[in-house]
Design a protein around this nucleic acid. Structure first.
Length: 510
RNA sequence: GGUCCCAUCGUCUAGGGGUUAGGACACCAGAUUUUCAUUCUGGUAACACGGGUUCGAUUCCCGUUGGGACUACCA
């Protein structure tokens, strides 16, 4: 029975490292954490894992904060709101880690090592599949092989050194994973992981375990790429004597590239023409700019709904979930084990759905603001009229401008293929007569336009079906668009007449 | 190479010892729309393979194959 989280306060954390833009997979990981927190009335914590000074990217932390805010993942505690376990930036907790590392050394659970990079390289070359472990550690330069005096004098002399976890071979480590069940690994397969680096910073493994313990994290929900090092983390909890309060683990399936296999990468996204980052991002080193999901026109509610379904399902046919419904429905038990391919088409479908579900007034704002950028004036009523006509034809907010600009900007050229198929003598005859009539109609609406069109068709002895395509070409330049009579209503009689006249003039010449 | 993880339509997935293997996206067809889109209806399409266990396996077990992750003083 899964009672544990009901009895202990759920505290989960999202712990990205500020090495660049937050990947969309990171958003999903954060989302799963967030949903569990909300579901259980627990706490969502944001911790920044910036222990690698060489990979630190300025602006990345701000980007993480903005991205989470954009998709509606609210941080209860941590970087940003602060909290009782501050600081939440690992670089600011340096001395905490070294204290715990020293404790491990004092307890004989870890040891100092002085090997240079060359030493390590040579060791690895010496034996195939070699790692720093029981089989090799006695031939290396460390506190296990050097005399006590030698070690003390080296440390006192400021010699560069690391702290390694002492892994005793021949034992089984059990990782109990909420998603994968029991994972057993022999300690003989595990290396003596570096805990403290020679620059005085902890590695992920140490910092992660110490912080999760200190911050009273109840569930570690992270990507599957961490599963292989989870046994080390279990070993660390044991070494510290924290086994009884060890968090539950849940290793999430990875997001895979849409074609072929492998982890979804920026490279794939670029290649296939879709975003990979939530927001626009400019790499401060290369100055390379990437377009985000937000700027591409994805709505946060669509992103959330799309991402949550990649690896989780409600067990019901429901596909559309508000954040509140997700919180209600979410459970780790229904997270799958297999990696999920990232299907941008599904994301588009969700986006289309959420976009169309918005109130017309809100949608018209998209058009209005685009018009403002173009310095085109438009009344609120007319914007609503246009947006209503376009509502079922859009995937992204900017489509309202893309598809709506024909109402503001007359075509100056015409689709050649359409013209050659649909532009003929009959059409010209009809258009001339229609042009003469349509401008005279005040307050022309779609219904009246249709009546007029039919009258003219009769008077010119043509069938509407033969000439309507040409009318559309004259008005819009091409073959696609909203209902023609609706288009005429929005355009107005005079503009309609003007466009027909222009088309007649430019197309009869050729 | 080693360790670990994974395996149902093209994709996301439901399901589970006996089912017409269900849904969604995508795709295809028809209807509506005097265009395109929308909408509606219908359709194509999956249990990787081989052994067990069993009266019966897609489901349970083992193996194979395939895929993935990790294999740094990166996270």
């Amino acid at each position: 029975m899964y009672l544990w989280p009901l009895m202990t306060k759920v505290r989960v954390r999202f712990a990205p490292s500020p090495t660049g833009a937050l990947h969309i997979g990171g958003i999903r990981t954060a989302l799963y954490n967030f949903l569990l927190a909300r579901k259980t009335g627990g706490t969502m914590i944001l911790r920044i894992e910036d222990t690698d000074q060489t990979r630190f990217v300025p602006g990345a932390e701000k980007y993480i904060l903005e991205s989470l805010a954009w998709v509606g993942i609210k941080i209860d505690e941590g970087v940003g709101p602060g909290g009782p376990h501050a600081p939440y930036r690992q670089s600011e907790r340096k001395d905490i880690y070294s204290r715990y590392a020293s404790q491990l050394v004092a307890d004989g659970k870890a040891y100092y090592a002085f090997d240079t990079e060359a030493d390590l390289e040579e060791m690895r070359k010496r034996t195939p599949n070699a790692q720093y472990d029981a089989a090799t550690r006695m031939s290396m330069k460390n506190a296990l092989t050097l005399s006590k005096e030698e070690v003390s004098s080296r440390i006192a002399g400021g010699a560069p050194h690391v702290v390694r976890l002492l892994v005793s071979p021949g034992q089984e480590v059990l990782v109990n994973d909420l998603i994968r069940g029991e994972v057993n690994v022999s300690t003989s397969q595990l290396d003596d992981k570096v805990l403290m680096k020679s620059d005085g910073m902890p590695t992920y493994h140490l910092a992660n375990v110490v912080d999760d313990h200190l911050m009273e994290i109840s569930h570690v929900i992270r990507g599957e790429e961490w599963l292989p090092s989870a046994p080390h983390h279990v070993l660390l909890y044991k070494a510290f004597g924290w086994e009884s309060s060890m968090p539950r683990f849940a290793h999430l399936p990875l997001l895979l590239k849409p074609d072929g296999n492998g982890k979804l990468s920026k490279r794939d996204a670029d290649r296939m023409g879709f975003p990979i980052f939530p927001l626009n991002w400019t790499d401060p080193k290369t100055n390379e700019t990437s377009t985000g999901f937000r700027e591409t026109g994805y709505l946060p509610e669509a992103m959330i709904n799309f991402l949550v379904m990649l690896g989780w399902n409600p067990g019901t046919p429901q596909e559309i979930f508000s954040q509140a419904e997700l919180i209600e429905a979410f459970s780790l038990e229904r997270v799958g084990k297999a990696g999920a391919k990232f299907d941008i088409l599904k994301a588009q479908w969700y986006n289309q759905h959420y976009l169309r579900a918005k109130p017309i007034a809100e949608l018209s704002e998209y058009l209005l603001s685009a018009l403002k950028n173009q310095n085109i004036s438009c009344s609120a009523d007319r914007a609503i009229q246009i947006v209503t006509a376009l509502k079922d034809r859009v995937t992204y907010p900017q489509d309202f401008w893309e598809q709506g600009k024909l109402f503001f900007v007359a075509p100056d050229k015409f689709d050649d293929a359409a013209v050659s198929r649909k532009w003929n003598a009959e059409a010209v005859k009809f258009l001339k007569a229609f042009r003469d009539e349509v401008g005279k109609e005040p307050g022309l609406n779609a219904e009246r336009a249709k009546g007029l069109m039919e009258e003219v068709a009769v008077s010119q002895a043509v069938k509407p079906g033969q000439v309507l395509a040409a009318l559309r070409i004259a008005l819009t330049g091409g073959m696609a668009g909203p209902d023609l009579m609706q288009t005429i209503e929005i355009l107005g009689g005079e503009e309609t007449a003007r466009r027909i006249a222009f088309a007649l003039q430019s197309l009869s010449a050729s």
